[in-house]
């Protein structure tokens, strides 16, 4: 750390080094580390009225975590466990969908599209994200509603006769989530694929490889770091999304973040909300690390 600071100070001057150093420290320590420590500490306390805080009843406890697993003591807390499993499952599904959608786009952007068309593709990708996240979610709701454009078009074309409830079937939710973080998938993949020497693709083609083989053996291994980086971000953010599930989720399906939200805001049980938030974080991180081990991605590749 000291060496890094000295290096920056030597190259850019002491003022810049102090600014970067203090900004980083503020960002990491005050905005990330401290609140997380507070959350972790809080999650091991009882939810006490202010009068009893600091009193004899204010002791360490595992009860908030125990509640997540056992509920109020009679068997497993199947509702909450199921919500977590479902959240993780859907987040994985959304990540895979995004991988499938974004890899071809990133590849075309990096290796086929030139000049004007490349700029148009990038604009087309970025501009919709100027619209606020909640508005975008509502736009999906309108699109997928029973009298929405998709139902109207489908029925007008005679593809189906009764409006299909995309909201209840969670199609709208999956689509909204998949769209929400698409840029965070495309750009890491684009960065990785763009660095690939185009001659390698042509060489593989020349040696008889089909397009599938070119991608499987040449492009994908090369882009693995970018894919991992994009997948990690999309998975983490999807699992932690709140607006899209609130607006687009079916009436009977809860997202795990909604449980966290309820504990904090409706039940005013901050310790339990903290415990739930920590559970989500730990499970997601464990899954990401597991995925990296399975696909043999070195940790440094994520930063690329």
């Amino acid at each position: 750390m000291g060496k890094l600071f000295a290096g920056v100070a030597h190259r850019h001057g002491l003022g810049v080094a102090i600014f970067i150093g203090s900004a980083m420290t503020l960002w990491l320590f005050v905005l990330v580390v401290l609140p997380q420590i507070a959350m972790v500490t809080q999650s091991f306390r009882f939810n006490l009225p202010p009068a009893e805080q600091g009193g004899p009843a204010d002791v360490w406890t595992l009860s908030n975590y125990a509640y997540f697993i056992f509920g109020n003591g009679d068997g497993l807390n199947s509702v909450d466990l199921w919500v977590l499993a479902r959240t993780i499952g859907v987040a994985l599904f959304v990540t895979i969908i995004d991988l499938c959608i974004c890899y071809p786009i990133a590849f075309i952007l990096a290796h086929s599209a030139k000049g004007m068309s490349a700029r148009l593709i990038v604009l087309g990708l970025i501009v919709p994200f100027w619209v606020n996240e909640i508005l975008r979610a509502f736009a999906f709701r309108i699109l997928f509603g029973t009298t929405g454009m998709i139902n109207e078009t489908g029925m007008a074309l005679g593809l189906w006769d009764v409006p299909f409830d995309f909201i209840r079937a969670n199609v709208a939710l999956y689509a909204g989530l998949a769209y929400a973080y698409i840029l965070l998938m495309i750009f890491p993949i684009y960065n990785a694929v763009e660095a690939l020497d185009h001659n390698q693709i042509e060489a593989a083609r020349d040696m008889g490889a089909s397009w599938l083989q070119v991608h499987r053996r040449v492009v994908l291994p090369f882009a693995k770091g970018g894919l991992a980086s994009g997948a990690t971000m999309v998975f983490m953010l999807t699992a932690g999304a709140l607006a899209a599930p609130q607006i687009l989720g079916g009436p009977s399906s809860l997202w795990f973040t909604q449980l966290v939200y309820q504990w904090f805001n409706d039940a005013l049980n901050w310790p339990r909300g903290s415990a739930y938030a920590i559970i989500l974080l730990v499970v997601c991180m464990a899954l990401v690390l597991l995925g990296m081990r399975v696909f043999k991605v070195p940790f440094g590749a994520i930063g690329k």
Binding site: D197, N199, Q200, E202, A203, R205, D206, M207, G208, A209, S210
Partner: peptide, 13 residues
């Protein structure tokens, strides 16, 4: 990929 030719690239690839 279907021609009986093999190309060696300038940067070898």
């Amino acid at each position: 990929n279907k021609r009986p030719t093999a190309l060696i690239f300038q940067n070898l690839a």
